[in-house]
């Protein structure tokens, strides 16, 4: 059955989530259910349902009073980065072991597309980067691993947009992706793992640096 509430909840979830990851709803900003419902032209019920899901995703915080977009906190960021590093490096290694020829065609296609996107199209680049990491996760052929990683991608997406205005290393990201695909292609597990480690570590180092500069203290 196509339940209206479900259809509306899904849409509300997708739109609000995008607003948060693209920083249109800034970290720490209050979340106004009524305003969102009006803006999305849906009822309050689906907006509340969507917010519940986003609380579960750690993107919205619900203290005893009010609702707020989750802050980007440096200690939590460290926790996220540690887990991502652990899982994605393992993922890269497994992908080198299990990737099929079709997986490689997909990865190569994504790299090719990335290299063709002009640097002033951050949304497109972001989308392709996300798809690339998802494709690696799927190339590891472990659906539980891919599911867990999807949650962490969600938490990292905001960082991408936070860091974006201060980043100059985008072309190198594409280079890293290409190197990674090459390593997976020749089934060099260690190298795949090492490249992924560098790639992610580099990203988080940069984000830490930017956040420290941004924060007033």
């Amino acid at each position: 059955m196509m339940e209206l509430v479900r259809v509306d909840t899904q849409r509300a979830y997708a739109v609000i989530r995008e607003k948060i990851t693209t920083l249109e709803l800034a970290p720490g900003a209050p979340v106004d259910e009524g305003k969102l419902a009006l803006e999305l032209d849906v009822g309050l019920v689906p907006v509340r349902e969507a917010i519940k899901l986003l609380v579960h995703d750690h993107l919205i915080e619900a203290p005893s009073m009010g609702l707020f977009v989750a802050e980007v906190k440096i200690p939590e960021l460290r926790q996220i980065s540690e887990i991502r590093l652990l899982l994605e490096c393992y993922c890269a290694q497994q992908a080198a072991k299990y990737a099929t020829p079709d997986d490689l065609v997909v990865l190569e296609a994504l790299c090719r597309e990335q290299s063709q996107v002009p640097a002033d199209e951050p949304r497109l680049l972001f989308d392709l980067d996300h798809k690339f990491h998802q494709a690696i996760a799927q190339a590891a052929h472990n659906k539980y691993l891919a599911d867990i990683l999807d949650d962490f991608f969600g938490l990292s997406q905001r960082l991408w947009f936070l860091a974006l205005p201060h980043l100059e290393f985008l072309p190198t990201a594409v280079e890293k992706h290409l190197e990674l695909v090459a390593a997976i292609k020749v089934q060099d597990e260690d190298r795949a793992e090492a490249i992924m480690r560098q790639h992610i570590q580099g990203f988080y180092d940069k984000v830490f640096e930017i956040l420290q500069n941004l924060s007033p203290q």
Partner: peptide
């Protein structure tokens, strides 16, 4: 099916 799997990833 293979085409679907690949295209849905990009």
């Amino acid at each position: 099916t293979r085409a679907y799997n690949a295209i849905s990833k990009v």
